[in-house]
Design a protein around this nucleic acid. Structure first.
Length: 840
RNA sequence: GCCGGAUUGGCGGAAUUGGCAGACGCGGCGCACUCAAAAUGCGUUGUCGAAAGACGUGAGGGUUCGAGUCCCUCAUCCGGCACCA
């Protein structure tokens, strides 16, 4: 007898079980799905694909555990399940690591991918390994370029010069979404500065309304938090555009306001100092004003985002020596420049209504500008709030319009509507909507990304690379300086950059920038449908069969960027006619984080739970059960609060039941009908409840129910029925099938011990027998004045009257009623009889 | 400031959505097995109380025969947005 068999004969041995089944599964490839039509309905279950920075970590273990539970569940429920895996393998960490080690980013990237693949194999999520993709493969990024060209054709990809977010550490631009609210880069942590650069953008703002409105369809299917975040991010605000004349300027200046009702209270105008308008107005002013403005502009631009976003600081600004004309009352109002107005929101200029906007009031009080009340706002006692000019507090609530000509006497909402009508009839304004969302800046000045398929001529004109010439493959890093230096390393690849136009013989240069890696991940879920197809990005027929993704699983850290971009690209694909749906992810689960002692794990803090060592010590099954059992999947898991040993103990107990059946139990195929009734009921209640629990992500409860089932089965065996009872086999089979979602190895071994062929992962779930779900006895609670006084065991067929009589007959109930008078009796079978009393 | 979410034993959490609060597990305690320990198994474990019983789901109020669950007010924590006009 080998040493291993020796250990095994003592009982459950996770190592031996893993070693036994891994090769079998490798050979069976049970999770590969074909394109062929089958009669089965389909589910597409997807985890957010990993970035290959080193080996997998506990965060991956958690997310992929949950995704796999759902994928395996739907298979068990009779669906064809597409559950693919790939790698988000372009990006800065690879490039930075490569620079540090002096190697090609490819080496680092693909070595990490190989390691993660090996870890995944052991961890055993039920992936279809025939559809693997890596975004850094030319076979993949070719289609990034194809999407770019399609968007370029549609005018959805364009270049413009603008103030952009610049990361001085990574030496590249960032999208708005990649700048944290404290003004630092989400990647490098550096304080982001503003630079004026010509860059490529995707026109996501064209889709702002659809991206916002379609969130309603996802209500109840996506976490509320994510919907909320997306809505905040898009930030639609409705109001009006009002055109102001500026004296000495032909063109009118539009401003955006959400409060057109307060137009009569506009006593000055403010423009953003870094706007074109400010520069133009300053240029037309006295030299004194020009100098003041110049100094102010420089001061503004020196500020970091952090400083600028500090709302508490004193208002600053300069008078631009110009006057605007209020279109509703013809009043001359001064025009100022101040950094509290942003150049890239609305029109970069505002009408200031100091009485009813705190920012405008602060500015007016600082610079001695007029404050005029146009809305009479009352406090809770019906008394008018004090004049903001003296109180220093702007009144922003609802109220009655005053000092406002034709709007006088109207309430806020009516006044807004009327003001818009008046503006429209006079042609000086209209209803308008603005968004917080900006266009998506997609160019990056780095090497390890998708080359932008555009050629630049000497005269500055551009032409797209023809589709047939795709992919534009990244040049080798040989002789290329990848160090961040503010311009793209690709520009240094002379031979690669230079292209001769076959039509004209003219020398063209390739665009040197690469795409934001969020482009890669904004459509990878489509590529999985046709991962090996080199003729198209994806097959629309496959999309019809599998897409959209039925179940998406991933971290909430992608709640804005990745999900917003994916939704956008999906809508673009829809508009291009490739798909017939507009939302990519039907249901979403955001798993929490894995913490240690209440803190995020990190190598530098030394509080790390290593995935690899946990896997080695306890095995994949115990790890997965621990993660699933810890609590609701969306909550954080503190590794200090869980017990992997506890999970292993449970698995051993479950496994021993199958072991008992193997040695002394009922044979395969035995009729369960004669089995122990109580155990059978227990089993069928589990079978009946498990689907609803899984579908509502209550994995922890399902594991608890499995533990309960194991305990109950063990008690049944020990209390006389013995392992030979057919109900024990029935229970063991049900445990194996449901357990296979969480612990595929142990469940497979149980399944084999129960005399079945591999693999349990493809077994359809047994259906609960309704006749075993009905109780013939009920335990009814009797309450007197809301307090439980007795529990009665009654036949399930009792009538209300019988139940009431039984309740009144109870000694305990009579004692607690005492000499009080019964005023009301409520019977709710089969749960409760509630008796209300009052003093006699 | 605006928006959203949370708060249940020593700990993680459960409660069929208004009907027995604390399932299941961790930890603790006791017992069995053992020379002993580990492992395993069995029992026990909300608080106060010897018991009967009383109290108990962040705080206060309300609706209801009945509230962890619904409504109002408040506190604390977490998340998003924020000089966004």
């Amino acid at each position: 007898m080998t040493e291993q068999q020796g250990r095994e004969s003592e009982g459950y041995d996770f190592q031996a079980i893993q070693d036994r089944w891994l090769p079998v599964w490798d050979q069976l490839k049970p999770f590969e799905v074909s394109e062929q039509e089958t009669a089965k309905p389909t589910k597409y279950v997807l985890d957010m694909f990993p970035y290959p920075s080193g080996d997998l970590h506990m965060g991956h273990a958690e997310a992929f555990c949950f995704g796999d539970v759902l994928a395996r569940y739907w298979r068990g429920r009779g669906y064809d399940v597409l559950h693919p895996i790939g790698w988000d393998s372009f990006g800065l960490p690879a490039e930075n690591a490569a620079i540090k080690r002096g190697v090609d980013p490819r080496e680092w990237t693909y070595a990490n991918i190989a390691q993660q693949k090996a870890s995944f194999r052991l961890y055993a999520p039920s992936f279809d390994w025939s559809r693997v993709l890596h975004t850094s493969d030319p076979e993949y990024y070719k289609w990034n370029q194809w999407i770019f060209l399609k968007m370029y054709e549609k005018g959805l990809a364009y270049r413009k010069a603008s103030w952009v977010n610049w990361d001085p550490v990574d030496q590249t631009v960032l999208a708005n979404e990649q700048v944290l609210s404290d003004g630092t880069s989400e990647r490098s942590g550096a304080v982001v500065v503003k630079k004026k650069l010509t860059q490529w953008y995707f026109r996501i703002t064209d889709y702002a309304d659809r991206l916002l409105d379609d969130l309603d369809q996802l209500e109840g299917k996506w976490p509320t938090k994510v919907l909320n975040m997306q809505r905040n991010w898009i930030g639609r605000s409705r109001g009006a555009e009002v055109e102001f004349e500026i004296e000495g300027r032909d063109e009118k200046v539009p401003v955006f306001t959400t409060r057109p009702d307060t137009l009569h209270g506009a006593t000055f105008m403010v423009v953003a100092p870094d706007s074109d308008l400010a520069a133009e107005l300053a240029a037309g002013a006295s030299s004194d004003v020009r100098m003041q403005f110049q100094a102010y502009l420089e001061q503004t631009q020196k500020q970091t985002e952090i400083e600028r976003q500090n709302a508490d600081r004193e208002k600053t600004g300069v008078f631009l020596d110009h006057f605007a004309v209020n279109p509703v009352n013809g009043e001359r109002i001064p025009v100022w420049a101040s950094d509290y107005v942003l150049a890239d929101y609305g029109h970069g200029a505002i009408m200031a209504v100091p009485a009813h906007d705190q920012r405008d009031l602060d500015f007016a009080l600082k610079f001695g500008l007029a404050v005029r009340v146009v809305v009479d706002v009352l406090d809770e006692n019906g008394v008018s709030l004090p004049d903001p000019a003296s109180s220093g507090v702007a009144t922003t609530g609802d109220g009655t319009l005053v000092n406002s000509g034709e709007l006088d006497g109207l309430a806020k909402d009516a006044a807004i509507a009327r003001a818009v009508e008046v503006l429209e009839s006079r042609g000086t304004g209209r209803a308008a909507t603005t968004y917080r969302l900006r266009d998506w800046l997609i160019s990056r000045q780095r090497y390890w990304g998708t080359p932008i398929p555009i050629l630049h001529a000497q005269d500055g004109s551009m032409q797209p690379v023809p589709e047939a010439a795709l992919p534009v493959v990244l040049p080798s890093t040989e002789g290329l300086d990848l160090k961040p230096k503010g311009t793209s390393p690709l520009g240094g690849a002379e031979e690669w950059s230079t292209v001769i136009d076959p039509a004209t013989g003219a020398e063209l240069r390739r665009d040197p920038d690469t795409m934001d890696t969020f482009v890669d991940s904004s459509w990878y879920f489509f590529r999985f449908l046709s991962a090996n197809d080199d003729a198209q990005a994806f097959d629309p027929a496959a999309a019809k069969k599998w897409a959209p993704v039925d179940q998406y699983v991933g971290g909430v850290e992608h709640a804005i960027l990745h999900l917003l971009y994916s939704r956008f690209i999906t809508k673009v694909m829809h508009d291009l006619g490739y798909i017939d749906f507009e939302e990519p992810f039907m249901e979403m689960l955001n798993q929490g984080m894995v913490l240690l002692d209440g803190a995020k794990m990190s190598k530098s803090k030394g509080n790390l739970v290593e995935f690899a060592s946990e896997l080695e010590a306890h095995g994949a099954d115990a790890l997965r059960v621990t993660l699933a059992f810890a609590g609701p999947p969306e909550d954080d898991i503190d590794w200090a609060d869980v017990s992997v040993q506890g999970s292993a103990k449970f698995l051993a107990r479950a496994w021993r039941i199958a072991d008992d059946v193997e040695t002394s139990g009922a044979a395969v195929g035995v009729s369960f009908a004669d089995g122990d009734k109580a155990l059978r009921k227990h089993t069928h209640h589990l079978l009946a409840d498990a689907p609803g629990l899984i579908e509502s992500y209550k994995f922890n409860v399902v594991v608890a129910r499995l533990m309960d089932q194991v305990n109950f089965t063990r008690k049944t065996i020990d209390s006389g029925a013995g392992a030979a009872d057919p109900a024990v086999r029935e229970s063991a089979e049900a445990i194996a099938v449901i357990l296979s979602l969480f612990a595929p190895y142990a469940a497979e071994d149980m399944w084999a011990k129960l005399g079945h062929e591999a693999t349990v992962a493809l077994v359809e779930w047994p259906v609960a027998d309704p006749s075993l779900l009905v109780e013939d006895e009920i335990t009814m609670v009797v309450q007197v004045d809301g307090k439980v006084r007795d529990r009665l065991t009654l036949s399930a067929s009792v009538t209300d009257a019988e139940a009431e009589a039984a309740a009144r007959a109870s000694q305990a109930v009579q004692r607690s009623i005492g000499d009080r008078q019964v005023v009301n009796v409520i019977v709710r079978l089969p749960k409760i009889v509630s008796i209300a009393t009052k003093p006699a």
